[in-house]
């Protein structure tokens, strides 16, 4: 089993390289390149909650997503990052606020129009076991098809592009039920890519995956940023991953946006202490800030906290040495 895994890794890398070369060789038609600029996507004064509870999870927050870049939403469990994403994707009804996509309120769009502009990969996905990978990816073309339309050549090209971009060519004929969790996730990403939207929202796409498939997923996100104008918003559980792959980070705590900026600005020892309630060591590297978590903080650490936040980052190495002892 383990041998297979490493073999897979090698071939996986190859396909990524191949993928990248095909992309640069003209995956984009020049037409699209010239007139297509990245989508503006922003939410204003959002109040989002679940029908079952009175208190909204997100209370009057605004978020402006950088066009054509990758924005990561991070935060501890229950901080509202997935809720915010669902609200942005119109999966949860807004109690208040507006979401603008290229200057239009998304609630003024028909459901299919919206699905042509904005794609969402949910955290948990279900499909019948006997469906083939190609069929599943083909469902991504749903918003582009009328009730009676069969697949057009354009649809097939989009499906092919999505399958090769997600690196699941070799799985094409397989039944989804026979795939591993990581492979399934890549197939689901291919389905969302086949939707060919300008904005892509991913809800914890790497959670529960092995490292190989986590990296596969993040490579796809990276490719999307480098090779296309797609605006990506991704909820990530792993703040390390977010710091490495995102252009922008938004940190949430208790349903409000705590910090917002480049990974270097957001990932600081102070923020990790305040938002994630951990002591950690943050080292700047070529691949973005790297975090070494040290220990969880508890309520009785708060006194220290208040004295230390004054001196902010300088004090934290002390913290680290203290715990090292």
């Amino acid at each position: 089993m383990r041998d297979e895994q490493t073999l897979e890794t090698d071939s996986g890398l190859e396909t990524v390289l191949e993928r990248e070369s095909t992309l640069t060789n003209g995956q984009h038609d020049p037409d699209a390149e010239s007139n297509c600029s990245a989508s503006e996507f922003a939410g204003q004064d959002l109040v989002i909650g679940y029908p079952s509870s009175d208190e909204p999870v997100i209370n009057r927050e605004s978020i402006h997503v950088m066009p054509g870049e990758v924005t990561a939403l991070v935060g501890p469990n229950g901080s509202g990052k997935s809720t915010l994403l669902k609200g942005l994707a119109d999966q949860l009804a807004l109690e208040d606020g507006t979401i603008m996509l290229d200057g239009k309120d998304i609630h003024s769009l028909k459901t299919k129009e919206l699905a042509r502009e904005l794609g969402l990969l949910s955290q948990e996905n279900v499909s019948p076991n006997s469906i083939s990978v190609e069929e599943l990816v083909g469902h991504g073309r749903y918003p582009h098809r009328g009730f009676f339309d069969s697949l057009t050549d354009e649809d097939r090209r989009a499906i092919d592009r999505a399958i090769s971009l997600a690196g699941v060519d070799h799985l094409r004929e397989r039944e989804v039920g026979s795939l591993s969790g990581g492979q399934k996730q890549l197939v689901w990403i291919a389905m969302v890519l086949a939707q060919e939207t300008n904005v892509l929202l991913l809800d914890e796409p790497t959670t529960f995956l092995d490292l190989h498939h986590q990296l596969e997923v993040m490579e796809i996100v990276e490719t999307l940023r480098d090779q296309s104008d797609i605006t990506v918003v991704v909820v990530l559980h792993d703040i390390d991953q977010a710091a490495r792959y995102a252009d922008h980070m938004v940190a949430l705590k208790d349903g409000s946006i705590y910090a917002n900026g480049s990974p270097e600005e957001v990932v600081t020892e102070g923020l990790l202490a305040d938002v994630f309630e951990i002591d950690a060591d943050v080292q700047p590297t070529e691949r973005g800030p790297q975090i070494t978590p040290i220990r969880p903080r508890h309520d009785d650490d708060d006194d220290q906290d208040s004295t230390e936040t004054g001196t902010d980052t300088e004090s934290s190495p002390d913290n680290a040495t203290k715990t090292d002892r």
Partner: peptide, 9 residues
């Protein structure tokens, strides 16, 4: 599933 169907428009 409902979520996927909805996000597909």
């Amino acid at each position: 599933g409902e979520n996927t169907a909805k996000s597909l428009g």
